[in-house]
């Protein structure tokens, strides 16, 4: 189907979202809670765009979250009207007030033209913007379900149940990888891995060939339960995998 985004005619398939189509066509829409590997949550509201159908109804337009809004034939989409720009600035100011010391949030806000916030700062140490990406990746992609969102409203938090390091955490680091404010630190030192944000600590399993740390025992076992892989694959670091098994895979198509 065809729609128009910022004056440009674009094509889209049934089932796609406005954001997907926009990004494919190099239209820049800011997002915080969106990640292409995850079900869109539509909670940061940065991606809001204006939709209308000027030929059919000249007095109608609507602001929708592009990360969840499904494409429709003949839609006219505007991603950066003055109204939207002002709205994004206010949202950025609100988030800056929430996480005033977070470098990622500060530069995100700067890109939107926001240098400071007039709103009151509640907790100057706060680093989390409750985008939910860590929870979604842990539950929906990895399947470990080690962290969740608890409480509600202004006191909503992310973390393991009872705030105590969870046995369900496998130390895979997917949460740290997706976090937009980089507040989940994964610290690997020697053969130990710590994720202080979730109060967990792990021992790293060494590579069978070179001895460098591969991943945690829990992570390896977790993957083993899923894919039936033996120690040759799972307890070998990526470098050695490439060196020793790359040629074999290239020639025979398998290990």
């Amino acid at each position: 189907m065809q729609l128009t985004i910022d004056g440009k005619k674009v094509t889209a398939k049934e089932g796609e979202t406005l954001l997907q189509v926009a990004r494919r066509n190099k239209v820049d829409i800011p997002t915080l809670c969106f990640h292409e590997s995850l079900e869109p949550r539509g909670s940061c509201r940065m991606c809001m765009v204006e939709i209308s159908r000027p030929e059919k109804r000249h007095d109608w337009s609507r602001l929708v979250a592009s990360c969840v809004y499904p494409v429709e034939e003949g839609l006219t989409v505007k991603t950066d009207t003055e109204e939207i720009t002002e709205m994004r600035k206010t949202l950025a100011e609100l988030l800056l007030a929430r996480t005033p010391a977070n470098a990622e949030m500060i530069s995100f806000a700067k890109r939107l033209g926001v240098e400071q916030t007039a709103f009151e700062i509640k907790d100057p140490e706060e680093q989390c913007i409750l985008c939910g990406q860590c929870v979604r990746v842990c539950s929906d992609v990895i399947g470990a379900h080690a962290i969740g969102m608890y409480d509600r409203g202004a006191t909503k938090k992310v973390g393991p149940a009872y705030g105590k390091g969870s046995d369900a955490c496998i130390g895979c680091g997917a949460c740290a990888h997706v976090c937009p404010t980089k507040c989940i630190e994964m610290i690997d030192a020697g053969m130990t891995r710590k994720i202080p944000h979730w109060d967990v600590e792990f021992e790293l399993v060494p590579c069978r060939i070179c001895g460098k740390p591969v991943s945690t025992r829990q992570h390896i076992d977790f993957v083993r339960r899923r894919i039936d892989g033996g120690p040759e694959v799972l307890e070998t670091c990526s470098e050695c995998l490439g060196k020793f098994y790359g040629a074999k895979v290239a020639a025979e198509g398998h290990m």
């Binding site: 539950s139 969740g148 608890y150 409480d151 509600r152 149940a161 969870s166």
Partner: peptide
């Protein structure tokens, strides 16, 4: 159900 899910519901 995972504990994190149940805790999330109970605290909500």
């Amino acid at each position: 159900l995972p504990l994190s899910e149940v805790y999330g519901v109970a605290s909500f």
